[in-house]
Design a protein around this nucleic acid. Structure first.
Lengths: 333, 333
DNA sequence: TTGAAAGCGCTAACAA
DNA sequence: TTGTTAGCGCTTTCAA
């Protein structure tokens, strides 16, 4: 900036005014400064600017995801980015891989770079450690899972209701032996989905068979093994509700390997690419992760505008998409 | 930091030394400062530190992708992140959506935040505009597509060789009427893949039929339409080479809709989720985008260590994965 | 409308 | 081993 000022023959402050498009500078000087800036290919230093500015805003957010390469996470990322782009905000993104310590490290990394906001798909089960960030005016919004030990905005899917819809869909198609395959019981959303399954069964008066309930299944490989074990039982399920996208993919593989894909019904939580092109096409309860990301970003922006606004939980509704696998009826009953 | 110094009863510089783990501070004072920092929940301001430091490193990189939610892009992102994490580097990520102007905006956005490096999967066809960044010591590495008008490291797939392998695979299975469906001819990689197709056909003495060549097909919907048109011809192809992942997905859909998935062979460039679970499973030439990301990040790190090291093009080899769709033989010939 | 001086939080250079 | 002073690039405050 000093070089630009020297070349344009004006003071530092005048260059600052032109760069920040403040008015009160004569057209003559504006032109001179712009010419000099272009000639030197001047790039303003936002970090220095931020250091001195009274509002201390860096126009930078941090986004903490389960895994940037996971389809769900990356769709949330995309939604956040769309809103951030309109606001001229740059977004740090990183993966936590279900590691609470990594979550804290990333918060610290982003905090020391003075982000204005943190959007967190939490892995930790305790978020009191964020109190300092909130006190310092960093907007914190949670997605996918709610926070614990801190009051903050949060965007979640209607996990229980979605699971009820999935389970009821199978019951309505005549199934009584309905298996559940879900993620770690320690994950709140996995629990809510399990609860939805249990509730739907209870409401319909259908018995939950403990040998048909597989929990703590986290990835596709474990899901393949779990579904294989289910199918190998003496009295196997006639339908399966898989409560997470990777589990559904694993179930598809196990069913196909057993040649049972047209005999055993399947409904999955979370949509995934190619679900409609499989044979049979896979019925799912779809979330809208991009909308979740957009909403979270919008909440960040509102929180930044008024730190004292009341905090809320925002529920995005899921929707059941029948495609074939969920409409298979039991062979005999 | 001032508050920490006051609370610990030491000078600013001593706190700075402790925070930066410089030695030459007595254990006694280190303990005092650490206690004070913990008590105040002190977070160092990396932007201020960077402003003053002589090396001017922010430990921050910018990653410019086609679309953060695209499976290819997000796998590259993951690879970059893995290396960045080890180095304690935070990564900005953003999508360009094939918009060259957006590419320049993002470079400017990240430059003004003083990133140490830019990793770009370029959309623009002219990169002379980056000369200033390079001169300022920002490490610039390109992935997926090479740069133009600037000397910089670059990581690409062996597009031509991969396309040759795919085409030859179909020829080896007896096909003579082999269609090509590829992305915008303006995209370098799409051109290389087309060239590989043409070369493989020529080497084998198989005629390229212009009516079987569909270019400028960018997304799944356009691919569905293109493959439908191919199948509707009076003398349709017995095999199709789709030169991009979304195009392959669209081709799968069109073939299935026409009931031709077991008659017409298909080999796609780029692997995708569920390709092995489709019926038939889809034969692909697979890239390793995560490895590409890791390599790009490693190159960034080397470039940062020595700005004057010679620039190179790094080719990551693709591999053909036979799964079924590519091994279908022509009905008659 | 323009500019001079001070200072954001931190570290380099030097001094004690 | 510890502290002092200056200044990174910018904006605030205030004066001209």
């Amino acid at each position: 900036m000093r070089d630009v000022a020297a070349l344009a023959g004006v003071s530092l402050k005048t260059v600052s005014r032109v760069v920040n498009r403040e008015d009160g500078v004569s057209d003559d000087l504006v032109a001179k400064v712009e010419r000099a800036a272009a000639q030197l290919d001047y790039r303003p230093n936002l970090t220095a600017s931020n250091l001195r500015r009274s509002d201390r805003k860096t126009a930078t957010w941090g986004l903490l995801l389960e895994d940037v390469a996971n389809p769900y996470s990356s769709a949330v990322h995309r939604g956040v980015e769309e809103v951030a782009r309109e606001l001229g905000v740059a977004v740090f993104a990183a993966s936590m891989d279900e590691d609470p310590e990594r979550e804290r490290e990333l918060v610290s990394t982003f905090s020391s770079r003075r982000v204005d906001a943190l959007i967190i798909a939490p892995t930790a089960t305790e978020h009191a450690y964020l109190a300092n960030e909130v006190r310092n005016g960093i907007a914190v919004v949670f997605v996918d899972r709610p926070p614990f030990g801190i009051d903050a905005d949060c965007v979640v899917t209607d996990n229980r209701e979605g699971a009820v819809a999935a389970t009821r869909h199978l019951i309505d198609h005549g199934h009584r032996r309905i298996a559940f395959v879900g993620d770690f019981a320690s994950i709140v959303t996995a629990n809510e989905r399990y609860q939805g399954y249990v509730d739907a069964m209870a409401i319909a008066g259908v018995q939950v068979h403990p040998e048909l309930v597989m929990r703590d299944v986290h990835d596709a490989a474990q899901a393949v093994a779990s579904v294989r074990a289910l199918l190998a039982q003496s009295n196997p399920p006639s339908a399966i509700f898989t409560a997470q996208n990777l589990i559904t993919m694993g179930a598809v593989e196990a069913l196909r390997d057993a040649g049972a894909q047209h005999q055993v019904a399947l409904v999955g939580f979370d949509d995934f690419a190619m679900a409609n092109l499989l044979d049979p096409a896979v019925t799912v309860v779809a979330q809208d992760p991009r909308a979740i990301g957009r909403l979270a970003a919008t909440l960040v922006n509102e929180r930044l505008a008024s730190a004292s606004a009341p905090v809320g939980v925002h529920v995005v509704t899921s929707v059941l998409i029948p495609r074939g696998s969920g409409e298979i009826t039991p062979a005999s009953n």
